[in-house]
């Protein structure tokens, strides 16, 4: 069980995530919805500890994630895989090596730095790629692939981590409708087959309603909705997307992030 308690992240005066408290049950598929700059990304990045909380705690099965440092922190990150909007693969490395990166926390440094992967490690990576129907791309360079293929490589990397939870930060925001389905179906299958908890930021309400067991709505860093998808009625949507208009101005770094994201999206569509 993932327990967030009063989790807060401030950028200067403004709180990007404002005293969020949530319990995420193991094996659930939870969608986090809300407008750009509502704090969805910051929330997920804090759970993986890519962003440091300004206050509050993150607990996983009675383990205090917020207090982890060094080796235990890296081990936590291996158990809590992250999937990004822009895939975050190493473009000049081949697909298999990108996927094997998900195994790095278990491989001793001397062997990984020389890329001396064992037969077992390669087998796990290829099994993950087969799972996502892209084992035939194993030898290709990652930057040669389409966006949808790259995101599936990123999911394979998450999978070989054999994580307990997967954090997906807008995994489909850069993808076309067909790839959106492929990627979301893959996440749903992973959730069912392996029982991995999934916490997924989503822009699209339709996608969120279709795939998630539970939706958490963020506006201006606060939880304004928490319930089953069918509970998300007209009024709830208005609260979710209307609140922000009255909320304090979006900070410049959030604007920049949003702008960069949309520019990259545009680049991808060419």
């Amino acid at each position: 069980m993932l327990v967030l308690d009063d989790l807060t992240r401030r950028f200067g005066e403004r709180a990007a995530v404002d005293r969020v408290s949530l319990n995420i049950k193991p094996g659930s598929f939870v969608g986090v919805i809300g407008r750009s700059g509502a704090g969805k990304s910051t929330l997920l990045r804090m759970i993986n500890r890519l962003a440091e909380p300004s206050g509050g705690t993150i607990r996983w099965n009675d383990e205090d994630v917020t207090a982890l440092r060094g080796r235990p922190l890296r081990e936590w990150r291996a158990r809590c895989a992250m999937i990004f909007q822009q895939f975050n693969l190493t473009g000049r490395l081949d697909v298999l090596t990108n996927v094997l990166a998900g195994r790095l926390s278990r491989v001793p440094a001397h062997r990984s730095l020389l890329k001396l992967w064992s037969v077992e490690e390669r087998a796990v990576a290829l099994a993950a790629l087969e799972r996502l129907d892209i084992a035939n791309l194993a030898a290709q360079r990652a930057d040669r692939l389409s966006g949808g293929q790259q995101q599936r490589v990123a999911i394979a990397r998450a999978l070989v981590q054999e994580p307990e939870i997967i954090l997906a930060d807008e995994p489909i925001a850069s993808l076309d409708p067909r790839n959106t389905r492929l990627v979301m179906d893959a996440l749903a299958r992973i959730n069912v087959d392996y029982g991995i908890t999934i916490l997924c930021n989503l822009h699209s309400l339709d996608v969120a309603r279709h795939y998630c067991h539970r939706l958490v709505g963020l506006a201006a860093g606060r939880v304004v909705f928490d319930g089953r998808p069918e509970m998300l009625d007209e009024a709830a949507v208005r609260a979710l997307y209307g609140l922000e208009a009255e909320a304090p101005a979006v900070p410049p770094e959030a604007m920049d992030a949003a702008r960069n994201a949309s520019m990259r999206t545009a680049a991808f569509q060419y």
């Binding site: 796990v124 054999e162 029982g195």
Partner: peptide, 13 residues
């Protein structure tokens, strides 16, 4: 909420 882990990728591989 589905039951706890059913399959393990490493073991299956």
């Amino acid at each position: 909420h589905p039951a706890p882990p059913r399959q393990r990728l490493g073991a299956m591989a």
